[in-house]
């Protein structure tokens, strides 16, 4: 499926393991940006918005490198975004049971391939920035995507691809 921001109820039809592309504006946020948004408010319209766990390298008005960071660091920091209407989180490595529950009936977690900073940058255009004082890696950058290839890691029905794979791996490790 080709998704375009702002997202709506089409995300409810996605199933963990679906491969999708995403186009339109997304907002980068790491640990510091989440804390700042909780305190000072979300600096973009959160309804249907997409948050990308990413600390990009920006040069002037150009996105140089923008691969995903580890989403698990935001496990305790994402509820307020989903409560405000955010429909999708993008990152790598998956998120925990709390976020899986928070996504239920509302949105999805989309996995982007870790380390693919050059691929990401080739499909991105910089549109703006909020909280620039947090520094390059932690600021909230508005970035326009052109068909970024993603996988549905957690769907809106409680299915979490990562925890399923991890459970099967635990089982395999226990076998002689």
């Amino acid at each position: 499926m080709d998704l375009v921001t702002p997202l709506g109820d089409e995300v409810l039809d996605l199933v963990a393991g679906d491969r999708v592309t995403l186009s339109g504006v997304v907002y980068t946020a790491r640990d510091e940006a989440h804390l700042r948004m909780m305190q000072d408010g979300i600096p973009f319209d959160p309804v249907g918005a997409v948050v990308y766990h990413c600390g990009p390298v920006i040069a002037g008005d150009r996105v140089v490198a923008a691969g995903p960071t580890t989403s698990a660091r935001m496990n305790r920091l994402s509820g307020f975004l989903l409560d405000a209407g955010v429909r999708a989180l993008i990152g790598k490595g998956g998120m925990d049971a709390t976020v899986t529950e928070q996504l239920r009936g509302r949105g999805v977690y989309l996995a982007f391939t870790g380390g693919c900073a050059a691929l990401a940058a080739a499909r991105m255009r910089l549109e703006g920035v909020s909280f620039p004082e947090l520094g390059m890696a932690e600021a909230v950058w508005a970035i326009r995507l052109d068909r970024l290839p993603l996988v549905v890691g957690i769907d809106s029905h409680g299915r979490n691809l990562f925890t399923g794979v991890q459970a099967r791996a635990e089982e395999a490790a226990g076998r002689p």
């Binding site: 490198a65 691969g67 900073a117 050059a118 691929l119």
Partner: peptide, 13 residues
């Protein structure tokens, strides 16, 4: 392939 062609880092880390 893109990193090699553009001379940009493969990964931001």
């Amino acid at each position: 392939e893109l990193a090699r062609r553009s001379g940009l880092p493969l990964c931001q880390d």
